[in-house]
């Protein structure tokens, strides 16, 4: 069954949805959209460095994404005007990655696969990496769920309850780097942030408690992955962007249903 490229693509898409749903909810609640962007864009730089130094792409992406996420997180605690700084970092990381990739010797690199993903080309080992990453992120967030939620609600209340908000931020930073590394192959650096934010935003209208929102974000992300693949298969559209288009359609739908 795993020999069918569509089945592998579906499994990969669902794996990303599982990893991105709960984390994406925190990204939405904490208004960290740009944070996700900057980290995802840094992945391109990770790809370039991995190719130059001949290490696995996932490892290179993970390390650079981790460095970027840590740096941005540290900046956020300094309380500077974050908007412009994050914008600069995010775009600088992307541009630097594109420049660095041009230095990669040998075979020409298929850049669009890294920018927009290549979900139809995932192999069995890719699926293992994606589901391993998803399991790791889910376990991490499930373990820290209550303190994370309290720190998101109010750092004051968290500290008064004996929770260290810095540690909870570190958990999110780690999780974000892992999600970026595993989602790169599926939706590409430009659309990873979309997989974090769009399903979670769509889930908001359906939820009365945080746990429900995280659950619906996973469900909507998985449905979008399958729907996008179907759209890609039937209409010969690019798969990664199709997934995001379907997710955006579901956001529109849930928002309209709620307004009614």
């Amino acid at each position: 069954m795993l020999d069918d490229f569509l089945v592998r693509a579906g499994l990969a898409g669902i794996g990303v949805a599982v990893a991105a749903g709960p984390l994406g909810s925190f990204v939405v609640w904490r208004r960290m959209a740009y944070f996700g962007d900057a980290t995802a864009h840094a992945a391109i730089l990770g790809v370039a460095l991995a190719l130059i130094f001949s290490v696995p792409v996932t490892a290179g992406t993970l390390i650079v994404a981790l460095a970027m996420a840590t740096g941005v997180s540290w900046l956020a605690t300094r309380g500077h005007a974050m908007d412009a700084t994050l914008g600069v970092l995010s775009h600088a990381a992307l541009a630097a990655g594109l420049v660095a990739i041009s230095f990669v010797p040998g075979v020409r690199v298929d850049l669009s696969a890294f920018l927009f993903g290549d979900i139809l080309a995932v192999g069995k080992s890719d699926i293992a990496v994606i589901w391993g990453g998803a399991a790791l992120v889910t376990a991490l967030i499930a373990w820290r769920w209550s303190p994370l939620l309290t720190a998101t609600l109010s750092e004051d209340l968290a500290v008064a309850s004996g929770i260290d908000p810095r540690r909870e931020r570190l958990v999110l930073t780690l999780a974000l780097a892992v999600v970026v590394a595993v989602a790169l192959k599926v939706v590409g650096a430009l659309l990873i942030a979309a997989m974090l934010i769009v399903p979670a935003a769509a889930a908001r209208s359906l939820s009365r408690v945080p746990e429900a929102m995280a659950f619906w974000a996973v469900a909507i992300g998985a449905l979008a992955a399958l729907g996008g693949l179907a759209m890609s298969y039937l209409g010969d559209t690019p798969a990664g962007p199709s997934i995001v288009v379907v997710a955006a359609g579901m956001f529109l739908l849930t928002t309209l249903v709620r307004r009614r």
């Binding site: 208004r31 209550s146 939620l149 609600l153 309850s161 408690v209 429900a212 929102m213």
Partner: peptide
């Protein structure tokens, strides 16, 4: 605390809030 501004993006019932952390 003096005030608690909860973002509209965070669904949270009073009952769930009282059960945190």
């Amino acid at each position: 605390p003096q005030k608690l501004a909860i973002d509209q993006s965070l669904p949270m019932t009073v009952l769930r809030f009282l059960n945190l952390p």
